[in-house]
Simulated assay, not measured.
Amino acid sequence: MGKSVRLTQNSYREAVSQTVSALAAPEGLTDQDMADLLGNSAASVGNARNKKGDLSAVAMLSIGKAFGPESLNTILSLIGAKAVPATAVCCENVGHIPLKIAEALPLLIALLSDGDCCDSDVLKLEAAGVIDEIIKAASVLERRRNEVRLRAV
């Protein structure tokens, strides 16, 4: 996340512009495509992308709904924050994660030791709840790493 930028109308518009551009470009979405997703006008989306206008709070929340909460991270970085899914594991409640991962290791080793992660491997890991546990652990570790980095700055 790094240092927070000074919160101004211009820094907000820059963050919104970066967000809209970064989401639209890889998918080849036009301003009209984005407007349809957000329940907005193409002109409003274009103005936001060109830093000439703002998007409403509802439009911003629609971005998070359509593209996932992490899509709002550029904007949230203005206040030194980032979005995580509501189901993300809280740092205070992670005692079960190491045990769950330890329990999953034999299955992970058995399925992935051949260097291939085929569809059936993914399905077996998903059925065992292993993928979600690893994602939760990675999310906690990433969040804590970022907190430590911010304090070190």
Rank of each mutant, 00 (worst) to 15 (best):
P98F: 07
K124N: 09
E92I: 13
M34V: 14
M1R: 13
S56F: 00
A152Y: 02
R149T: 12
D36L: 15
S71H: 06
I131W: 07
N40I: 06
A25L: 13
G68T: 11
A24H: 05
A88S: 11
C90W: 09
R49M: 01
P26S: 04
C90R: 09
L61Y: 05
R145M: 10
K65V: 14
G53A: 01
G129P: 05
K136N: 14
S11C: 06
G39H: 09
I134P: 11
S11M: 03
K51Q: 08
Q18D: 11
A83H: 04
N50V: 00
D31C: 04
A81N: 13
N93T: 14
P106L: 12
G129H: 01
Y12W: 12
E142A: 15
K51Y: 00
A88W: 07
N73L: 03
S56H: 03
A42Y: 05
A138V: 12
N146W: 07
I131T: 13
S44W: 03
V89C: 11
K136E: 08
L111R: 13
F67N: 02
G39R: 14
E92M: 11
L29K: 07
L141Q: 11
K51C: 03
L150W: 01
E147A: 15
A104N: 00
A59R: 02
D33V: 09
D54Q: 07
I109S: 09
R143F: 13
V153Y: 05
A152T: 10
A42D: 09
S56Q: 05
S120W: 01
F67E: 01
R145H: 10
D36F: 03
I79F: 15
L37S: 14
L111D: 10
S21E: 10
E103P: 06
A137Q: 05
N47A: 02
P69M: 07
S71G: 04
N73F: 04
S120E: 13
I75W: 00
L38R: 05
V153H: 11
T87H: 04
L112D: 08
G64D: 07
S41T: 11
S62C: 08
D119I: 08
L7R: 04
P26T: 06
L112T: 08
G2S: 10
A43F: 04
E142L: 14
V84M: 07
V140K: 03
A59G: 06
K3V: 07
S120N: 15
E103W: 06
G129S: 03
A137R: 00
M34D: 00
I134C: 10
V5T: 15
N50W: 00
E92Q: 14
A83V: 05
A59P: 06
